[in-house]
Design a binder for these strands. Structure first.
Length: 486
DNA sequence: TTGCTAGTTGGAAGA
DNA sequence: CTCTTCCAACTAGCA
């Protein structure tokens, strides 16, 4: 009898899971395992909303496995030690998992593969988190990942369509004999030291089933899918948002990118006038792929120093400014409302992320993008190591994007799509009674208007921590110097 | 080597 | 309200 352990990490799904299929094909008995690493679930590292989403995804996976006569075994502890112990206790002969290309995961997986190999355990890994295997894409590109999106699209054309999604398993090997003794152990948020989740957008919606339902629901409006243009979507729309909000499912692998890709192709076939990458929905999947591919070969991808694609810029450490930004008290309602939405819902529209990221770094506060990256990493339900680093480099004009003189206005930008300030009024109820005219710059409201609205600047809502026009001019000069020095 | 082109998503002012 | 123009500007990719 060959006892096999399949280790779920990302890829929390049964559909299109090549590593799982390959692993169970050779198994007589199976131990499906997930490990909760206590170091990664502290409130300092992860907000309650993302942790709740993960726990829901695990519960959904457990239910799916049970329908096939199996179950999910949730272990808690340092992952390498946990898996090593399980391999020994359950006399595992084969280990399988989906490859994870993040540096932390690569390091972790190297250790467990070494331990398994030393003990004579066969290890089976396959990629499944991206459309293509980044290593294979780079090899096809001649050993160097493209540095621009357009060059990456050319590479994709050369690669041809990604592999078709594989079916979910119709049956699973019986549970390993020792699994019966292990209690069902998906912990609660409270057990992990967290308050309850506050999300409205993704509340109670973790897991593969919800992912596929939300995908179907979004795809049902076929003209909208075919004509989707990301830059034209509304960053101030929040009930409902103007984009798919599928990102958390892709982050945890509740949704396969290849399943998404295939579904899009079917719709695109009906619409000759569909939008194209980079702005189309397919283009969004390709941005993800582009960044994953480049990150695979770039050292220190989530840092400025030692990162060969990142411009070296003398950001200034300023804990007070950083805290004001993170806590939504910069005095700019559009920025503050977005930061409140981030913390309440764990989600922000892409362009709202742009606005707050530009504000923290090159636009206004001149604080390092790495500090902002850590804040997003904590609060976003869809926090994705590679995409988070990529977009912070983009917005801070450290890589990919170089037109640093283009600075988002914290006053004018949101006014274009939301002149009445409904978004601000929702997330900053203290400002709700201000007239439209002052909703994005309340410090300009005459005192009588502030009193009438029940919102005195400096008492009920902060005055701006920087003068945007002055900060912008000063920072443009600093960017010019940094670019010249580079 | 050099020159040329194109690049997901700005803002202000004016027609 | 929508469109155009100007501002000031850098890089990767390619011929």
């Amino acid at each position: 009898m060959t006892a096999t352990l399949f280790w779920f990490r990302k890829g929390l799904r049964l559909h299109d899971n090549p590593a799982l299929l390959a692993t169970i094909a050779e198994a007589h008995t199976l131990y499906p395992v997930f490990v909760i690493d206590p170091a990664l679930v502290t409130p300092e590292r992860v907000g309650a909303n993302r942790l709740a989403f993960l726990l829901e995804s695990l519960a959904a996976l457990d239910s799916s496995l049970r329908r096939l006569g199996s179950r999910l075994i949730v272990l808690r502890g340092e992952p390498v030690a946990c898996i090593a112990r399980a391999l020994a206790e359950w006399q595992i002969a084969r280990l399988g998992f989906e490859r994870d290309d993040e540096p932390y995961a690569r390091q972790r997986d190297r250790q467990i593969v070494q331990i398994a190999t030393e003990r004579g355990i066969a290890v089976r890994t396959l990629p499944g988190h991206t459309l293509y295997d980044p290593a294979a894409s780079i090899a096809a590109a001649g050993g160097r990942a493209p540095r621009t999106y357009q060059a990456f699209l050319k590479l994709l054309a050369q690669l041809g369509p990604p592999a078709a999604p594989c079916p979910a398993p119709g049956a699973l090997p019986p549970l390993g004999p020792l699994a019966g003794a292990i209690p069902r152990a998906i912990p609660s948020l409270a057990e992990l030291g967290h308050p309850s989740a506050t999300a409205t957008l993704h509340a109670g919606a973790g897991g593969e089933g919800a992912a596929l339902e939300r995908l179907s629901a979004w795809l049902a409006d076929r003209p909208r899918v075919a004509h989707f243009a990301k830059p034209d979507t509304d960053p101030t729309a929040f009930a409902p948002p103007s984009t798919t909000t599928l990102s958390p499912y892709l982050k945890f692998g509740c949704l396969s990118p290849r399943t998404f890709w295939s579904a899009l192709q079917q719709i695109y076939a009906e619409f000759p006038d569909r939008t194209q990458p980079p702005v189309s929905l397919l283009g969004q999947l390709y941005w993800r792929e582009f960044f994953y591919t480049l990150a695979w070969e770039t050292p220190n991808y989530d840092r400025m120093v030692g990162n060969p694609i990142c411009r070296q810029i003398p950001w200034e450490d300023d804990p007070a400014r950083l805290a004001a930004w993170e806590e939504g008290r910069t005095g700019y309602p559009w920025i503050d409302a977005a930061m409140i939405q981030l913390r309440q819902e764990g989600w922000l529209h892409h362009l709202a992320r742009h606005a707050v990221a530009c504000f923290l770094t090159r636009g206004d506060l001149w604080v390092s993008w790495e500090a902002g990256q850590r804040v997003f990493e904590r609060w976003l339900v869809d926090a994705d190591w590679c995409l988070n680093a990529s977009n912070w480099m983009w917005l801070s004009a450290s890589a990919f994007f170089h037109a640093y003189h283009r600075v988002y206005s914290p006053v004018a930008f949101a006014r274009r799509t939301d002149p009445g300030g409904q978004y601000v009024r929702h997330f900053l109820p203290g400002l709700a009674r201000l007239p439209d005219r002052y909703i994005y710059e309340p410090w300009k409201a005459p005192l009588a208007v502030q009193r009438e609205a029940g919102c005195l600047i400096g008492r009920d809502y902060p005055a701006p921590i920087v003068d945007h026009d002055q900060a912008r001019v000063r920072n443009l000069e600093r960017m010019r110097s940094a670019y010249a020095a580079g």
